[in-house]
Amino acid sequence: MNYTLHQLEIFKKIAETESVTKASEQLFLTQPAVSIQLKNFQDQFKLPLFEVVSRKLYITEFGKEIALAASKILEEVAAINYKSAIFEGKIAGKLKISIVSTAKYAMPYFLSNFIKQNEMVDLTMDVTNKMAVIRSLENNDCDFAMVSTIPKKLNIERIELMKNKLYFVANKNFKFPEKQGTLKDLNKPLFIFREPGSATRLAMERYLVKNKVEIHKKMELTSNEAVKQAVIAGLGISIMPIIGIKNELQNGDLQILNIHNLPLETNWNLIWLKTKNLSTVAKAFKSHIENNKKETIKNNFSWFLNHEIY
């Protein structure tokens, strides 16, 4: 047999996705290139690694065993590369971060220079809701988490990053008083909520309860992007973090509603378990954040931190 590491990586990804198309997309390769490598890899075995039924690809039991072995081989190769880089004085290894969905508009900017400066760091960033982020942190499945609400039940360390501002937003055709209005002026629209477990949803619910707003119609969507598109389409209104709607505000697709006691303000925090034994990579990233956060914020986020709607 004369298979290559490249073929192992491709087959491992095909086994994970059960799709040549999805594997090619995730590996940033063309579909024909992936198909050719899959055929060359299969030709080295007497038993089938996969089968196609009704145009859908299925991995055989033998194929699953080969995929598992491929995964272990690739992990060992990565470990060799990390060790080699470390002996050369480089920062090398894996960095795992779990973030709430709205933090995806901020965290890449805090990561950018660190990843560019340390090419041997492999980043995994899970984007999900608050409950899943806290569960990942609690189960030690990540090095760091980025949240706007500090979990009270966990003993954590944190670095405060920057403010998170949330406003009520509507599409460009929504009629609202030019001067500061009240929630009664909303004329009972449909309210668009994030799913349970979302920090944005919790902030919205607290605001509506505190101001005694009676909800007659509501919709629930499972991502910030879905909420944004629904508001742009005129389905209803929602409370959203301004950090995620910069282009839509500039293009005039969305408008911020000038309502009393808004914006709601929280703080983005990078958090980790106090008992966590941080790896060399994690310690390096923590140090990078501490030394560069002010410059990162100034260069990328001053537009919304200084935003006024009046």
Rank of each mutant, 00 (worst) to 15 (best):
V147P: 05
K184G: 05
G181C: 08
K210L: 10
I256L: 12
N267T: 11
N224S: 08
A226T: 01
L202C: 09
E178A: 06
K172T: 11
R194W: 10
K188P: 10
M204D: 10
E157M: 14
Q255C: 04
F168G: 10
I232Q: 07
V147C: 07
P241A: 05
S148C: 14
N139Y: 06
L249N: 03
T149Q: 12
G197E: 13
T266H: 03
L264G: 06
Y167R: 02
N224P: 02
A199L: 14
P263C: 08
S198Q: 14
A145E: 05
N267V: 09
T149F: 03
L257N: 00
F176T: 01
E265C: 06
D253W: 07
V213E: 14
K175W: 13
I192A: 09
K218P: 04
M204C: 11
L161N: 00
E157G: 00
I232M: 11
G181W: 12
V231L: 11
I232N: 05
K165H: 14
P177D: 13
G244T: 00
Y207E: 12
E214K: 00
P263N: 07
A203R: 04
E178I: 00
M240L: 10
N258G: 04
L208G: 12
Y207A: 05
C142G: 01
F191R: 02
K165S: 10
V213H: 11
T200H: 02
I243Y: 08
L183S: 11
N164C: 06
L186Q: 06
N155D: 15
N171G: 07
E265N: 12
F168S: 10
T200S: 14
N224Q: 04
A233G: 09
I243T: 05
